[in-house]
Nucleic acid binder design. Structure first.
Lengths: 142, 142
DNA sequence: CTAATATCTCTAGTGACTAGAGGAGCAAGG
DNA sequence: CCTTGCTCCTCTAGTCACTAGAGATATTAG
């Protein structure tokens, strides 16, 4: 007899909220589970594993579409590994450029705050910097 | 005679897309402008300044509600500067923690990719790491 | 006068959920 | 057997900050 779990069990085991589990089912990221006589979802051990996989990937910032691809690779063990590597590599690049732009923002915000001596907002460096883009440290933040 | 600008002019001068300008008007971030006889928006120099302020703040990652507060401070020069500093300070903290978690992700992704020797996805370290959360470098990514 | 371009309003879509309404299943205690 | 309280059900709508598109009108250049 295989163990089976309610949606609440799956939620606790995977750390994914119940509403989110239903949402994932709706978009096809989690399988459509069996139902009890009363119409409630019944999950198996495999579903717990898949939910954990998804949660971990989301925590790592992978997008849903990436996860869809990674799940396909997980289920087809003969698929070339480089497909997964490519997804991870692209994601790493996104993260790297995201970090770079956030660091630029941090620098500018820090400068703004350090230079701010005033008591009234008319002297405020934060306001001034925002109002006058030409005094900005960087050309591009985004 | 004050200079006046069409929405297209404002868009070019501010770097904000036309549709976004209308959206900002809708949510009260930009003022409701005068209209020409034919019903087109007419902007003044002040609006250009305000649009630039908004764009710069958005580039720095401030949320719309933050910008609303900062605009209020800009327009009331007697307001205490620390109100603006507080907003910027909070934002800086958000950015710092965002950077920290992205760096954790980067580390884990890098490790995953470096350890990946395989040819088939069943040996893929990327897939394996995602499937087995316990082998994860960090407790928390988020 | 015509053709091209700019602008208008309005609706709906994006991603990844989240919140809430209103109803039904289910287990335990009295 | 009945009630209480929890879990679960579906469905709709809201979040944020836009973006895209349809279909209509205004303005401008030639």
């Amino acid at each position: 007899m295989m163990p089976h779990f309610s949606i609440g069990d799956l939620s606790k085991k995977s750390g994914i909220k119940i509403t989110t589990i239903r949402y994932y089912e709706g978009i096809g990221l989690l399988p459509v589970p069996e139902r009890s006589q009363g119409g409630r979802r019944i999950y198996a051990q495999d579903d717990v594993r898949q939910a954990l996989f998804i949660r971990h990937a989301r925590e790592l910032g992978f997008e849903i579409e990436d996860i869809r691809s990674l799940l396909a690779l997980l289920k087809n063990p003969k698929q070339p590994c480089k497909d997964a590597d490519l997804i991870a590599q692209k994601h790493l690049e996104r993260i790297n450029s995201h970090i770079a732009s956030l660091e630029a923002l941090r620098e500018e915000l820090t400068t703004m705050l350090q230079q701010c001596p005033g008591h009234e907002s008319k002297d405020c460096q934060v306001i001034k910097t925002l109002a006058d883009h030409s005094s900005c440290l960087h050309d591009k933040h985004g």
